[in-house]
């Protein structure tokens, strides 16, 4: 009975050990590919990402949104607070799209003119939940 249980302990611990190794390999392998989007710094750094379709994410830079008056054409800057990239988009923007809030754009980055031509814009929500009244009070204080 005793040796039987010892064998089971060995079985379970070797299973757990091999799973841990597998976990490390999976995470290492995924690190390259699992990111949902690139940051502006990734694109402007020397490493050229030549993909027909990729996503960039960051904050919409303050005072950078230019919306055309008679069409759905929009220009704005996406920044990761180090580098920023100009994004061009034609279409309807999500409700949460605004300055200083998170955004993810899917499209094509043209290295020749440095403009990101977006086909889809998603708004990213951050982890902060603030009531309207509190926000008003905060703004009034500063």
């Amino acid at each position: 009975m005793r040796t039987k249980r010892r064998n089971r302990v060995i079985f379970v611990s070797s299973l757990v050990a091999s799973l841990s190794v597998a976990f490390i390999f999976i995470v290492l392998a995924m690190n390259e590919n699992v990111d949902f989007y690139y940051t502006p710094s990734d694109l402007t750094s020397s490493k050229i990402i030549n993909k027909d379709s990729l996503r960039i994410g960051g904050l919409v830079q303050e005072d950078s949104i230019k919306i055309s008056k008679d069409s759905l054409k929009t220009n704005f800057l996406v920044t990761d607070l180090e580098n920023s990239i100009e994004v061009y988009y034609e279409g309807i923007l999500p409700n949460l799209f605004k300055e200083n809030s998170g955004v993810i754009a899917r499209g094509f980055y043209d290295y020749s003119d440095g403009i990101f031509y977006a086909k889809e814009i998603l708004a990213k929500h951050d982890e902060n939940y603030i009531p309207k009244e509190v926000k008003k009070a905060l703004v009034n204080d500063t």
């Binding site: 690190n31 990111d35 990213k124 929500h125």
Partner: peptide
């Protein structure tokens, strides 16, 4: 652990 740490380790649409 992948579910738990996914939002910390990688860029995801889901907030942390």
């Amino acid at each position: 652990p992948i579910i738990k740490l996914s939002v910390e380790w990688w860029n995801t649409l889901h907030q942390s």
